[in-house]
């Protein structure tokens, strides 16, 4: 059986808006955008987006599937919620951007650079091991995300910051041994597994039904 996550959903018949509505968190809001551009002007990293949210919404309606899903745009979202509280149509823009990012990643369209898609995945992997984030391991995973050589350079560059955090006891070397975590790891993992199963089943159902 093919993985529904990796299947190109042909049944949308080129209708990318319907695909987004069916599969992207809060995607049903996309058609409500009236193209005012307040979101684009409110974004702290706006200058670095391939396409600002306003343009992404229009591109979704125009069926620009590849351009939207493989763009770096959504990965520039700092989750500041500025666009969301300012939107005159009250679109949950931040959530839609996260949802587009999740969907792009899921179907293998997320870009290799910038590193945010990979960093965000490491964050998730980190927290699901013990139920809590291990800041030291997350930091090290980030430093070495592009291999040993770059990792050592980054670690050198960041050593003052690391020392500052160590001295003020806001970082603990003992976290490398396992560190904080929840007790009911088995229940926690079973719960997440079930949530993921339900979500994947919904996506598979959308594919079959051609929603």
């Amino acid at each position: 059986m093919s993985n529904p996550n990796q299947t190109i959903p042909g049944q949308y018949r080129g209708n990318f808006l319907r695909e987004v509505e069916a599969n992207v968190e809060e995607g049903e809001w996309v058609k409500m955008c009236m193209q005012c551009g307040v979101c684009a002007g409110s974004c702290p990293l706006g200058p670095y987006w391939d396409y600002p949210p306003q343009q992404i919404f229009m591109m979704i309606r125009a069926g620009k599937r590849e351009e939207v899903l493989s763009s770096t745009s959504m990965w520039m979202c700092t989750s500041c919620y500025n666009c969301m509280v300012r939107c005159p149509r009250e679109l949950p823009i931040t959530h839609i951007m996260h949802g587009l990012a999740t969907y792009a990643k899921r179907i293998g369209k997320a870009p290799q650079t910038p590193i945010t898609p990979r960093f965000a995945q490491k964050f998730w992997d980190n927290l699901t091991v013990t139920g809590r984030v291990n800041e030291l391991k997350l930091g090290l995973a980030l430093y070495f995300i592009n291999g040993i050589g770059e990792g050592i350079q980054t670690a050198m560059k960041m050593q003052d910051i690391g020392l500052g955090m160590l001295k003020t006891k806001r970082m603990s070397p003992f976290e490398i041994l396992g560190g904080h975590g929840i007790k009911d790891k088995a229940g926690f993992r079973a719960m997440l597994k079930k949530a993921e199963e339900i979500e994947l089943a919904k996506i598979a159902k959308n594919q079959v039904a051609g929603v």
Partner: peptide, 9 residues
């Protein structure tokens, strides 16, 4: 930032 690995549910 967990959204790359974790879906909505």
């Amino acid at each position: 930032i967990g959204y790359a690995g974790g879906g909505e549910l």
